[in-house]
Write a protein that binds this DNA or RNA. Structure first.
Lengths: 191, 191
DNA sequence: GAACTATACGGAACCGCGTTCCGCTTTGTC
DNA sequence: GACAAAGCGGAACGCGGTTCCGTATAGTTC
């Protein structure tokens, strides 16, 4: 995926990896992470051989899509922070994170499948989300809009559990629960 | 499996179902629940066709093995009750239940796979284990060996969680934890 | 116990999926 | 424009679940 050493990546190769990541994200979102590799290949307008050239194992593709979507969610944090007040940015990002989690249903099982391709994902998740949320929290705390006794990691986990557990109940149940949680953050502000 | 209606089961058919259940239990125990059907068939000395005659879907076989082992564990309760004092019978059965849970590692994932063959299993689990443990508890309480504020269902769940969570730590970690729990039961006896 | 039929058996065959292989195409360079 | 390296496509392989069907057998009837 991410190449560094001397060898330069050919233009078509780069184009194909991008197309594959995009196609895979779409296919996994609609058909679940168990969708056949061929389906992804077709959607990307590419042969299976090409998929396996870029992602030696099926699980590498899944992991790459995961990392990719973690990145885009984490990268949204500074953008929101620049465009909104601290409290609102925090709330908006948590909603964004909520929908990220919602698309990761099938993955939860895969993560515990023992496939080594997934070993590094939890660390990646924390490494990207904790700082992202940490910054938002800090600003909100500094602005006095939010209490100061909440750890980013705990909040991430809490929201994730809330979403994964309450998903059967109804569509925007998760959204409401997360709103509730955010209100909870706002409650105990020390003057 | 369990036939009732007019049609009588042929002797060889019955022999084969039994052999299959036994073989499947053995294979699943060593190779996990994902072991190939063919492996079970071979171990049972039977063709694949025969497996599918008795268990239309692979998951039906898995479910049948599960029910079978639930039964044998639940049936142990009255036997232990007859052979030991109330408190000891309770402790011994919980250890038996502990090792039952230990063999069900891979199944936990399967249960949430959405396969309809597994839908009825949780109810079966409760239906057999709650009465079994309930009787043991009741006797122990009546004998004044154990406190009276514990629900069978809660205890079953607690032990299961204890075992499934602590399994990575070490072999008899579960055993010690369950012993601890039993001691906890004995602690608060009201005179 | 021989004939007969419903029932059950075995395993080859089929299908979908992950993965590999390899002859052909494209890119980048001189 | 020619050449080699890098990349591509898709046929082909192996494996696992499931189906099919010709054959064998249990149980029954005389």
């Amino acid at each position: 995926m991410t190449e560094q050493p001397g060898r330069r990546v050919r233009a078509d190769a780069r184009r194909n990896t991008d197309a594959l990541l995009e196609a895979a994200a779409a296919v996994f979102a609609t058909s679940g992470v168990d969708a056949p590799v061929r389906e992804v290949a077709t959607k990307a307008g590419v042969g299976v051989g090409t998929v396996y050239r870029h992602f030696p194992k099926r699980s590498d593709l899944v992991a790459a899509v995961f990392r990719h979507s973690v990145d885009s969610c984490a990268d949204a944090a500074p953008v929101l922070a620049a465009e909104h007040g601290p409290g609102e940015a925090l709330a908006l990002w948590l909603q964004r994170y909520t929908s990220f989690i919602a698309t990761k249903r099938g993955l939860a099982a895969a993560l515990h499948s023992g496939d080594p391709a997934f070993d590094a994902l939890p660390a990646y998740f924390d490494g990207r989300f904790r700082p992202a949320l940490g910054a938002l929290l800090e600003s909100a705390v500094a602005a006095g809009e939010v209490r100061d006794d909440v750890e980013p990691g705990d909040l991430l986990r809490a929201v994730a559990n809330l979403c994964l557990a309450g998903s059967d109940v109804g569509p925007d149940h998760s959204r409401r629960m997360v709103d509730l949680l955010v209100d909870g953050l706002r409650y105990g502000v020390s003057p």
